[in-house]
Design a protein around this nucleic acid. Sequence first.
DNA 1: CAGTCAAATCTTGCATACAAGATCATTGAC
DNA 2: GTCAATGATCTTGTATGCAAGATTTGACTG
Lengths: 250, 250
Amino acid sequence: MILYARFDWLHFYRLLNSYHHFGRPIVRGEATPRLREALEDDIVAGRLRPGQRLDEVGLAERFNVSRTPIREALIQLASSGLVEIRPRRGAFVLLLGPRELIESFELMAEIEAACARLAARRMGDEDRAALESAHHACEDAVRAGDPEAYYPTNAAFHAAIYAATGNRVLAAEALRLQRRLQPYRRLQLRVPRRMDASFAEHEAILAALLAGDGEAAAQALRAHVLVQGERFMSLITALQDEADVVARAG
Amino acid sequence: MILYARFDWLHFYRLLNSYHHFGRPIVRGEATPRLREALEDDIVAGRLRPGQRLDEVGLAERFNVSRTPIREALIQLASSGLVEIRPRRGAFVLLLGPRELIESFELMAEIEAACARLAARRMGDEDRAALESAHHACEDAVRAGDPEAYYPTNAAFHAAIYAATGNRVLAAEALRLQRRLQPYRRLQLRVPRRMDASFAEHEAILAALLAGDGEAAAQALRAHVLVQGERFMSLITALQDEADVVARAG
DNA sequence: CAGTCAAATCTTGCATACAAGATCATTGAC
DNA sequence: GTCAATGATCTTGTATGCAAGATTTGACTG
């Protein structure tokens, strides 16, 4: 029985063969992708702060292009969750509220736990090597006591777990979320001794992964991400109280 | 309070001037979201097929707008994973290859499993009621033996689980993936007896959720989604063989 | 002096213009 | 007859123009 006779398989294969569309960019010509990356870097690196307004004309002048590619870059950033576009009001660097932060970290924890479970079962020798290499890079940053250096190596360690699942769609999704939370993680790692604790947790996760114990790895990774979220929330709260005191004093 | 405002000559004059754009809607500020929704509906409902090209000019004429809002809608759809934009070549309804399909279903399975675990722990009376109501709607469609009616009720049942987690970020993510896979699920449910099996699985999932057994619900839901993916893959393979035969014959 | 309302100003949303890359068709060689 | 090269045509990517919503300003009212 023909269930879907008119499905266009010819086109299907032409598409598949001509383009590896899961390596990524949903981007186009020249300016727009460059702008998207530049703005994304600025946001993730903290040069543009959450809540800050992104003026189309200003950005167009800064990058020496017209408003059109700026708009398109902003729309992409909004779709990937780094920017919020309020109709007829402009674009703002996304500012997650306490509730959204908790929920985002919970989502991240669940996705990473799934990654750990799958990675433990499936990873090959290259994945193992990449994971250990990323872990050692983290170790170096910890030894140096340098949070600024730990931050990218930490991201790379997590990314290595995503990659080890062998599931590119899942890995892409995890990376997207990771980038979305990166501006907040950056704040979080400044909490005293958090870096050392984080690294210790990495060690447990890595051990479980190498032992092929998916459930243990999943549990450990979920807890690792959730504790980041919780630590971060208490930091936020503390900062907020501080701000309130200052506000009352002023 | 002024009950009847003075006649606004300035606004009247501007309104008059605005009529020199003939044949176009005079009200602005709603084109892009409207287009995005219309195109999304067309894709999810299967009126636009995976792999089909989306010509900017053609769409602009069809919707009686310029290319600009069409482009912006397409970019949004690309970011949410329903459309693929190939630089300087145009936009196409996303056509997932076999590998991407498997991986996407796996991701979906993991996310839904997480939803089930959380929902079992957290759902309140309203969530329970919504879940049961959605389940009964599914039952009606199954009794009627109507796959076309089953799709939306099935989607609603799953959506009710997402909502029951109380985590809006997670729920939004799950919904995004659900929509991305909807065009393919539609194909899948035409497999004979799949609808009945699906409903039976729903029943087990619902029972576990109502019993508060998160692990059981997670397991059942993961298997439920994965089996959809596997069924679908064998369908794809069958169609592919068929297409090969046709290709050789032609 | 605070609060309100209208008009000037600013910014976005959409339309249109145009250049450059991609596709297609025709021609010519082998 | 197949294939390659070349130009015509089509389509996208970016720039620019313009009108309406949003914001600010400033004058007026109570």
